[in-house]
């Protein structure tokens, strides 16, 4: 942990660079969403824009967490404590979506195999 004044002095530059990177990342996010030739996937918003946007956001978030929040050289306890939040948060979201995406399909009795109703929730 960069606790001694000398080490902190050294990291000032790093903080500035990261700050700059965050600015660049933000501008980049806006550009891919608004400038036509940077619009990947189909025209307008689609899943590729979403993936790219979230990718940039995740990168930025990781930078903040690693450098500003000192997670790059933190005690192992902190990894456990915060990691648990991340893990269970992810588990919750994933399982909710799994449940959402796994509906009962009711194929009907007398429609000759044609679905007569699909219960999606």
């Amino acid at each position: 942990m960069a606790d001694s004044p000398e080490e902190i002095k050294k990291s000032i530059r790093l903080y500035l660079i990261i700050g700059g990177a965050l600015f660049v990342g933000t501008v980049l996010t806006v550009m891919v969403a608004t400038i036509p030739w940077m619009d990947i996937g189909g025209h307008g918003f689609d899943v590729w824009d979403m993936i790219l946007g979230l990718l940039i956001a995740t990168t930025k978030a990781t930078l903040v967490a690693l450098i500003f929040m000192h997670l790059n050289h933190e005690k192992v306890w902190v990894y456990w404590l915060f990691g648990m939040g991340l893990f269970f948060g992810a588990a919750m979201v994933a399982l909710i979506f799994l449940a959402k995406g796994d509906p009962i399909h009711y194929d009907g009795f007398s429609t000759g195999g044609q679905p007569s109703a699909v219960i999606s929730e």
Partner: peptide, 13 residues
């Protein structure tokens, strides 16, 4: 979600 079997969850979940 074992509290929610009645909500129409599919077989996988």
């Amino acid at each position: 979600a074992h509290h929610m079997y009645m909500t129409g969850m599919g077989p996988v979940v």
